[in-house]
Simulated scan of single mutants.
Amino acid sequence: MEQKRCSFVTKCRDFKPHLLMVLVQFGYSFLYLITNASFDHGMNPFVYVTYRHILAAVLMFPFAYFLERNARPKLTFSLFMEIFVLSLLGVSLTINMHFASLKYTNPTFIVAMLNTIPTLTFVIAVAFRFELLDLRNSRGIAKVLGTLISLAGALIIALYKGNLMRNLWRPLIHIPGKSAAINESWLKGSLLTVLSCVTWSIWYIMQAATLKRYPAQLSLVTWMSFVGAAQSAVFTVIVEHNRSAWTIGLNIDLWSTIYGVKY
C-alpha cells in the first residue's frame, strides 16, 4: 500500500506542470466571462486595463523590491526604453486591443484565438532567426506539424458555426446581447484579436531577450505593469472624455479588475 501511494505521489509530481497549465486555462476562461459581463455592465475596457495594471504594480512592488534587492541589475536608459517598448507590446497596446475586441466578439472566440499565440510566436521566431528550424530531423518536422494542427484547431473552433446547443441549467453569469452570429462588428473585433495575438507573440520573443540583460523577473513584471498602466492611462484620457467612466463601485467591475490581476 505504501509503495502504491509513493508511486501515485511521484506520478502527480511528474504531471504537476501539465495540471497547472490546465488550471491556468480554466482561469483564463473564467477571466473572459467575468470581464465580458463587466463590460456589458458599463465598464470601459481601457479603464479596466489601466486599473488592472496599476493594482498589479502595487501588489508586485514589495516582492520585487525585497526579494530581488541584490539580484536586480542597474537600470540604464537603454534598458528602460526596452522595458517601455515591452510595456507597449505586452500591456498597453496588446491588452487594450485584446479586451476592446471582446466588445465586438465573444469569450469563446477570444479564448480560441489565444491558442494561436504559441503558433505565431514560433513562426515569428523562425522568420527572424531567433529559433532554427531543421526539417531534416523528426523534431523539426514535429514542430511544423504541431504548429499547423494547433492553428487549424484554433481557427475551426473560432470560425465554425454549427447547430445551437441548449443550456441544461441556468448560466452563472448572464451576458445579454451577445450572439454567435457574425454581425457588422465581428470583423472589427476579429482584426483586433488577431493584431493583439501578433503583438503578444512579439512581446514573448522580446521578453526572452530582455531577461538576459535584466534577469530580475519580479522587477521586470513590476516595471512593465507600472509603465503599461501609465501608457494605458494616457491613451484612455485621450479617447475617453467622460470622467464617470473612471468610477467603479462594489460590483462586478471591481471583482473583474481584482481577478484580472492574477493574469
Rank of each mutant, 00 (worst) to 15 (best):
L59C: 14
V22Y: 12
S101Q: 02
G27P: 09
R129D: 03
G249H: 13
T76K: 12
V144W: 03
A57V: 03
A209R: 15
N163R: 12
F46D: 08
L133F: 01
P45C: 01
V144N: 06
A181R: 13
N36H: 06
L133S: 02
S179W: 03
G189C: 03
L148H: 09
I238G: 01
I205W: 01
S179E: 12
V111D: 04
N115S: 10
L191D: 00
P45Y: 01
S190R: 01
K74Y: 08
V49G: 00
W200N: 08
L86Q: 11
V234R: 01
I34C: 07
A208G: 10
L145T: 13
W223A: 15
K4V: 07
E131K: 03
K178W: 01
P107E: 02
L33F: 04
S196A: 11
T76P: 09
T10F: 11
T119E: 01
S38C: 05
S232E: 13
T119Q: 00
V9D: 13
L172E: 07
L192W: 05
L23C: 15
M165S: 14
S87A: 15
S87R: 04
G146L: 05
I34N: 06
I202Q: 00
T222P: 06
F109Y: 13
Q207P: 12
R69E: 10
T210V: 14
F26S: 07
T76S: 15
Q207S: 15
L86D: 03
V47K: 06
A56D: 01
S7P: 01
G162N: 06
A180W: 13
I248S: 07
I182A: 03
A208W: 08
M113D: 08
H18D: 14
W200T: 06
F15I: 08
T199L: 02
I83E: 08
V123N: 00
S185G: 04
D40M: 13
L132C: 14
A158Y: 00
A71E: 13
K143E: 09
I54P: 05
L172D: 03
M1A: 07
K103N: 13
L254F: 07
S219P: 10
G228S: 00
V49E: 00
L168C: 11
S201E: 05
P17R: 05
K188A: 11
F128S: 11
Q217A: 14
I156K: 04
L114S: 13
W223I: 15
Q207C: 12
L159A: 06
L55H: 04
I238C: 06
S138P: 00
I54V: 14
P118Y: 05
A56W: 05
T116I: 11
S87Q: 08
K212L: 09
K4T: 11
A152W: 04
